[in-house]
Design a protein around this nucleic acid. Structure first.
Length: 1129
DNA sequence: GTACAAACTTAGC
DNA sequence: GTCGGACCGATTCGG
DNA sequence: CCGAATCGGTCCGACGCTAAGTTTGTAC
């Protein structure tokens, strides 16, 4: 690998600021470091073992900061009398006016008798006083071949005032404020990156005579800058009101400055000040105004955006190049845009000699025509970019307006108005806009859509334009996304590295050794995102398995300790399953974040969302069309994980905005596919076509291959997957499984009391006969299926009792149930894990009498966050399985034995408190009778269970079949409903209507009353035709007066068709209006578990089911539970 | 400051 | 909780 | 006999009904 040109000195093996990039270059002989900033010393560390040249101060800094060995330093300082000769090359250092210790290197290389001069500016800020420098003068006079230039701000848009003007501004602001004693104590905060702002601090110190507080580390660091006065000006005592703080302490600075007022408030409160005056010093917070930008908030303080740059402004760059007039300029920053930047320098470089030399190359042997072509090219280049002197004021304003339109999605008029109000300050204008729109755009009281789980509809709520009259145009608020995308520059294309990695992931013969995407030993989040992206492109499960497997091989090879973390990121679920991290973010918050990060309005987002049905996709599209002002740092998997956890930890006042800020900062850093999946991760809707089962299977396979090599047999892999699944289902904690798996290939596989096992599940059936058939010849029992809440109760040896839900959530609201269990236990019992249903009951006066309550009544119990006495309705525990007893796992015992033990384990059970689930004696009753009896008793149906089978944790087993009354068409009537409205589907149902709002018809009132939304039971084909059917003439603009519902669907329909819909239950509803007032004063009724059965073209809408039918169903349910029960067993 | 409502999220079935 | 769709491996079907 | 059609199992992601809990905004 050759030395990259912009880090090289031609004719030598010198490398400037290229420790990592050139560490392994054969050509590299000698290393130089211009200054102690991360992007320049990258690769230096305590392991670096070759001598290198730098200034004394820079040397001190890297020794301290990086632990570089002192003896490797070779000093070249601006004060040196004579140049240092290195390998025959004379090298001088001159001040770069950048940060302490920063220098530019001047090289004089003697080659074939000719002295060739090269300047490496490092990072520098040009200053006219540099013209006084003798060495530089010489380089000007004697002709410099190449100026390697710090082109950080090589674009006419980057302007900023003299550093002294900025310093004066800061000092004056402080002095004025200090004089005004009426306003109480002010805390002054200076945020800065690294070293570089020392002159501001010094000036403040001189002006106020006070010391500046800095954290110990910063003090030590600044002390090495070789500025004694500064060292003396610092203190570690925070009582002073001048504070140095870390970058970002008062707001996000990219792409536009956005204040973080909650942090400001925290600073203010912590240091007992009346207000905070903050100074954010940055290179690009300025657009040529006489005044600098500020942001204020009453009661909190003011943030001053002070343009103070350690890099040259655009005009300064031109001045420097013009002064040196080198033959050629080589940009060292933003090198991808080299061609664009070079155009700015045409006319300032000494092209004549460069051209001469260039043409000289062709003077021998080349064809004349070719020579001509080349020559022409150079001339065109030379002509191309002149005339930037006429910096046009009018066009600048126009540009600002255009940019603002793009950012806000607003019309030209609004953009102009915003610019006027911000007096031309683009960033301020953008801020004003987003501030105001977030205040005025209200989410209407539409109870509408809070219902759509993780959909963003609540946030996007309100009517869609075409749902109204269709005449509402995009109007003021709406700019088509395409208008924005076409305006902003496209970002860099996906790197070839990324493409190669994606390709490799799909390879049958993946080689994890190649570290394409790795940065050091840390796993980049991009690897995860790329994997997810590849997976989402396919539906083939074998491919998905392979890709996941390859990713895990990759991680296991490079960074095995990040394996668990990457599994969690791939699952989009952090932490073990039984205590997963909850982000507390939903569609509304994440949509808000996307708006901010992508600088789009809600209106734009809403329009765009309708088409994709996926917020992640929308975000990715907008982000990819965004012009970037800076290059974000790559996201590391570990950082992403940490930040997500941090999001989850925010709670209490203002926590929502803190969460959002964290999320935004993640999104700002996201590249390529990362955006999409970060958004989806926060929404907890990854939608990649792989879930826990697939991911864990792949993990198990990868672990075997990692340990035993590629050539393992298919059987071996299957066996490994099987064992892993078993272990995981019994101990669903990767933390405790994976390390052993990778290191030893051994799996712990025991129940730990206090950690839930995955519950065994039952398969649904379609009727009595089908269910019985599934049991085959095996003896089985029919057990009542109670309508309550599944619970796994653990009694630990110390007597502590924990309750876990079906989804492995710990439930703290069942203190009463725990006590009931304790009383029912055998005195001998030391530890136990049992499976049960907790059902709400109302106990009668007679001992042991009780009445079962509906699920709805049970779930209205308070859900205590921590174990404490619960209130609300009483509960009864119906135990039905025993998995662990007195230190022994019973998972492998047949059900018959487990049931016997269960009965023995609960000798003191009492009716209405702790009971065994009622079951039929398999010899006596028929399944049908059992089902009828269970329904009579107020249960949902029965569970058929084979007595000889063991407990299959986590499996939806064939040995347990659930038989519910609503599975049997002869046992429960369906309802004929009329669709009266709908929403737009998400994800795979984007583009269709889904769900549909369905209603009963009240003949007397002559109105349609909503009963439920329906989205289950439709085929894809039905969706397609039905969506078209309604769109084509049956959508009506407004809700008719004779539609009764508290729902507000996106579109309303004419009542034209009848659908047969089946459900399990009738509940009292807060939103649906069927039979409103009949069983409850104001509330209507709703259908639980609704699903579409078939269309009823034979029925007219007026023949649809009515409120009476629903009321009848409801009453039937209530009466089955009405009678007191005893001896439920 | 307090009380209440609305919005948003998570969770059970 | 409900459901349908897609994929995959095994089995049956049909020429 | 072999390729094609079919079947059953499994996984996944569309969303239904509700409730409570938390945070924010607003009215007194």
């Amino acid at each position: 690998m050759p030395i990259p040109r912009h880090k090289s000195v031609p004719g030598t093996g010198f490398v400037v600021d290229g420790f990592r990039a050139c560490a392994s270059c054969k050509e590299a002989t000698t290393f130089f470091l211009t200054h102690a900033h991360g992007d320049h010393y990258d690769g230096l560390s305590e392991r670096w073992d070759r001598p290198f040249y730098c200034s004394t101060i820079t040397g001190q800094l890297v020794v301290r900061k990086l632990g570089v060995k002192h003896e490797l330093l070779r000093h070249i300082d601006p004060d040196d009398e004579d140049p240092v000769t290195v390998d025959g090359v004379r090298v001088r250092a001159i001040c770069a006016n950048h940060c302490p210790g920063a220098v530019q290197f001047l090289f004089e290389v003697v080659e074939s008798g000719e002295t060739r001069r090269y300047i490496h500016s490092g990072d520098m800020r040009w200053n006219k006083s540099m013209m006084e420098n003798e060495a530089l003068r010489c380089f000007r006079k004697e002709k410099t071949r190449i100026l390697f230039l710090d082109t950080t701000y090589c674009n006419p848009k980057h302007k900023f005032p003299d550093q002294t003007a900025s310093i004066d501004y800061v000092v004056k602001t402080i002095e004025d404020r200090e004089r005004d004693t009426s306003r109480g104590r002010a805390l002054y905060v200076f945020t800065s990156y690294n070293i570089g702002k020392e002159r501001i601090f010094l000036a403040v110190h001189r002006a106020t005579g006070k010391k500046l507080y800095a954290p110990p580390d910063k003090v030590a660091h600044l002390s090495l800058c070789g500025i004694d006065e500064l060292t003396g000006a610092l203190t570690e005592d925070p009582r002073t009101n001048l504070h140095l703080a870390k970058w970002g302490a008062v707001g996000e600075t990219w792409p536009y400055f956005q204040p973080n007022w909650s942090n400001v408030e925290e600073l203010r409160a912590r240091h007992g000040a009346e207000e905070v005056i903050a100074f954010v010093c940055t290179g690009w917070a300025y657009d040529g105004k006489a005044e600098f930008s500020t942001r204020s908030r009453a009661g909190l303080g003011t943030i001053h955006l002070v343009p103070y740059s350690e890099h040259s402004s655009f005009t300064e760059l031109l001045e420097y190049v013009a002064y040196i007039k080198p033959e050629e300029v080589v940009p060292t920053v933003n090198v991808k845009d080299t061609q664009k930047m070079l155009k700015h320098f045409t006319g300032l470089t000494d092209e004549s000699s460069a051209k001469r030399r260039f043409l000289a190359q062709f003077s021998g042997g080349k064809l004349a025509s070719e020579r001509k072509k080349q020559k022409k090219g150079v001339e065109v280049e030379a002509k191309g970019g002149g005339g930037l002197e006429g910096a046009k004021v009018a066009s600048k304003l126009f540009e600002g307006q255009q940019e603002l339109m793009a950012l806000t999605g607003q019309s030209a008029d609004i953009a102009r108005d915003l610019l006027k109000r911000s007096r031309g300050d683009l960033s301020l204008a953008a801020n004003i806009f987003f501030d105001e729109s977030s205040r005025t755009t209200k989410i209407g009281p539409s109870s509408s859509s809070t219902k759509i789980g993780k959909s963003v509809s609540p946030f996007l709520g309100g009517k869609r334009p075409e749902a109204a009259t269709g005449s509402i145009s995009l109007g003021k608020g709406g700019v088509k996304p395409s208008q924005i995308t076409s305006r902003l520059t496209t970002p860099t294309a996906a790197s070839s590295e990324l493409d190669a990695f994606r390709e490799a992931l799909q390879s049958d013969d993946f080689d994890p050794v190649g570290g394409g995407l790795m940065s050091g030993t840390d796993l980049p989040y991009l690897a995860i995102a790329a994997c997810m992206d590849v997976i989402s492109q396919t539906k083939k499960r074998l491919t998905i398995q392979l890709v996941l497997q390859n990713l895990f091989l990759f991680v296991a090879h490079h960074s095995p300790e990040e394996l668990v973390l990457s599994v969690e990121l791939l699952l989009g679920s952090l932490g073990p399953e039984y205590k997963t991290v909850k982000f507390g973010l939903g569609g509304a918050s994440v949509a808000n974040m996307v708006c901010q990060v992508c600088s789009v309005t809600r209106q734009v987002l809403r329009n765009s969302y309708k088409d994709d049905g996926d917020l992640g996709d929308v975000a990715a599209r907008f982000k990819s069309s965004q012009g970037l002002l800076g290059k974000p740092k790559p996201l590391m998997a570990r950082n992403v994980h940490e930040k997500l956890v941090m999001i989850s930890r925010q709670e209490g006042a203002r926590s929502v905005s803190k969460k959002q800020e964290l999320g935004i900062s993640l999104l700002r850093q996201a590249r390529g596919p990362e955006t999409k999946f970060l958004v989806r991760t926060m929404l907890q809707c990854l939608r990649i076509g792989a879930n826990r089962t697939s991911v864990l299977q792949a993990l198990a396979k990868a672990a075997v291959i990692h340990r035993e090599g590629k050539r393992v047999s298919k059987e071996r892999l299957e066996e490994a997957v099987c064992k892993f699944e078993k272990a995981y289902n019994i101990c669903p904690s990767l933390e405790s499984i994976v390390p052993a798996l990778i290191e030893k290939g051994i799996l712990p596989c025991d129940i730990s009391v206090g950690i839930p096992i995955k519950p065994m599940l039952a398969k649904p059936s379609t009727g009595v006969e089908a269910a019985v058939d599934l049991m085959g010849e095996e003896p089985f029992i029919a057990e009542y299926k109670y309508d309550g809440q599944r619970a796994q109760m653990h009694v630990e040896e110390g007597g502590k009792i924990t309750v876990w839900s079906r989804n492995l959530e710990q439930k703290f609201g069942f203190g009463d149930a725990c006590e009931q269990l304790r009383e029912a236990l055998d005195g001998e019992c030391s530890s136990i894990v049992l499976d049960c249903e907790i059902v709400g009951v109302e106990r009668g006066e007679k001992a042991g009498s009780f009445r079962m309550l509906s699920f709805q009544e049970l779930s209205s119990r308070p859900r205590a966050a921590q174990s404490q006495s619960p209130g609300g309705t009483a509960v009864c525990i119906f135990a039905f399985d025993l998995m662990f007893y007195n230190g022994t796992s019973l998972l492998d015992r047949p059900l018959r034995e487990r049931l016997e033990l269960l009965e023995k384990a609960l000798p003191n059970r009492r009716d209405g408190f702790v009971m065994l689930a009622s079951k039929t004696d398999e010899k006596v009753t028929t399944t049908r009778d059992a089902l009828m009896a269970s329904i009579e008793a107020g249960c949902e149906g029965v569970m058929l269970k084979q007595l000889s089978k063991c407990y299959e944790a986590g499996r939806r087993s064939d040995f347990w079949i659930k038989l519910k009354k609503d599975y049997c068409s002869d046992l429960q009537d369906s309802l004929d409903l009329v669709p009266i409205g709908a929403w737009y589907g998400n994800g795979r149902k984007a583009g269709w209507f889904s769900p549909f709002l369905c209603a009963v018809y009240d003949r007397e009132q002559e109105e349609f009353q909503s009963l439920c939304r329906v989205m289950s039971g439709f085929s894809d084909e039905f969706y397609t035709t039905t969506t078209a059917f309604f769109k084509d003439g049956h959508v009506i603009p407004n809700k008719p007066a004779y539609y009764q519902t508290l729902e507000s669907p996106s579109v309303w329909f004419d009542p034209v068709v009848v659908w047969e819909v089946r459900g399990a239950n009738i509940t009292v509803s807060p939103v649906h209006q069927a039979a409103a007032g009949r069983v409850h004063d104001s509330r209507g009724l709703a259908l639980r578990f609704p699903r579409f059965v078939r269309a009823r073209p034979d029925k007219h809408v007026e023949e649809a089911s009515g409120p009476d039918d629903v009321v009848t169903l409801y009453r039937a349910e209530v009466t089955t539970r009405a009678g007191d029960q005893q001896n439920g067993e």
